[in-house]
Design a protein around this nucleic acid. Structure first.
Lengths: 197, 197
DNA sequence: CCAGCCAACGAACGATCGTACGCTAAAGGA
DNA sequence: TCCTTTAGCGTACGATCGTTCGTTGGCTGG
């Protein structure tokens, strides 16, 4: 039962990966079993099976997307010491993530936030927890850098979290909707300006 | 033919108004004729009729939402002289709009931007034009205020547009997803800080 | 007053949705 | 070698999707 279990895991990951791609462009609620089955050359039953239901599939896709954000921005920054050094790396990674993201249509988390914020349920709860955790992590690095006297204190940590998050969101719109290729560089410059002054 | 034409117009507006509400929570692509018909106590044919097709209905709903944003933020600001005075009023109106918006689930334009940015078509084109026009209007007021020496020039107009837009988007997430009631006031303070420093 | 117009209805269509069921075939442990 | 497990398939179900049709009833212009 070893070999087959491994194969099943691989199939599951293949489904989720394709699901993330489709959900990035069409939205999580437009992620349909039929189209996903056709895209993967599988039967509908073969898609739903590993996840129990469509809701389970959506949850797996959202979880995967959150992991991908963490893998792209958070994880690599842990190699660097906390505070300003890590903050600088995070900003670089964040803007690089916005520039050429692992999703075809920009930040999946931002899109999911807009899509799910008014729909109570497991998806929203998970997204809320993810965003809260990310903001707390960002705030933590800001506080450490402030206490070390490395960045500005004219704005408090909460203000800076809002400012940095906002710059990322605006840049995301400029890249995805407006097609502005200069947005990532501007975002990076604005983020650095926000924490230095 | 006068009376009936007026009644038809009224029905059309009633459909669009309900459609805006539903699309605000469930997304524009989840705006379905059947549910809208049931919500309004009408037949499906009576819903589609005035718009020709579902796509026409979606377009009418998106157009209405854009009008509502303009009516809430842009139009009242035109009573005030351009430049810094108008900018201050716009910021107040903008944050008030985020705080208690005419939509049940936050800024419709931001949500639509995330939903449609990867889907070419008439909806995306209209949204692109709307956002471009709004950003140009905002930039214009910034430039006027800068040339008058009323606001900072350490950041250029494009930077300030990104910064202000971003603060609004971050605040929108804080209000709608995170349930942070202090977000509107913080957004207003951050916007004013961005242009004055 | 009456003929014509039109907003809205009700029914039906093919397609697709999510889900449930039984089946097949391959793989692993005894 | 045989038995059990299970990944994935094929089919069918009821519900709902968007759209099209003929009909109806109340208004309006003449």
């Amino acid at each position: 039962m070893r070999r087959s279990a491994e194969a099943a895991q691989l199939t599951r990951e293949r489904i989720v990966a394709t699901g993330v791609t489709k959900a990035s462009t069409d939205g999580l609620s437009a992620l349909t079993i039929g189209t996903l089955a056709e895209a993967l050359g599988m039967s509908k039953a073969g898609i739903v099976g590993p996840f129990g239901s469509r809701a389970g599939l959506q949850f797996a896709v959202l979880t995967k997307a959150a992991d991908m954000f963490i893998a792209a921005v958070v994880a690599p920054s842990m190699e660097v010491e906390s505070g300003l050094p890590r903050l600088r790396v995070m900003i670089d990674l964040w803007c690089g993530y916005l520039d050429s993201s692992p999703f075809p249509n920009g930040c999946f988390i931002t899109a999911a936030s807009c899509e799910l914020d008014g729909r109570p349920g497991e998806l929203r709860s998970f997204l809320l927890a993810t965003v809260t955790r990310w903001r707390a992590f960002l705030r933590e690095q800001i506080v450490i850098a402030q206490e070390a006297g490395d960045i500005t204190t004219t704005l408090d940590a909460d203000d800076l979290v809002t400012a940095l998050t906002g710059i990322a969101m605006a840049a995301n719109q400029e890249i995805q909707l407006l097609g502005d290729a200069t947005a990532p560089a501007r975002a990076r410059r604005l983020m650095l300006a926000a924490i230095t002054r």
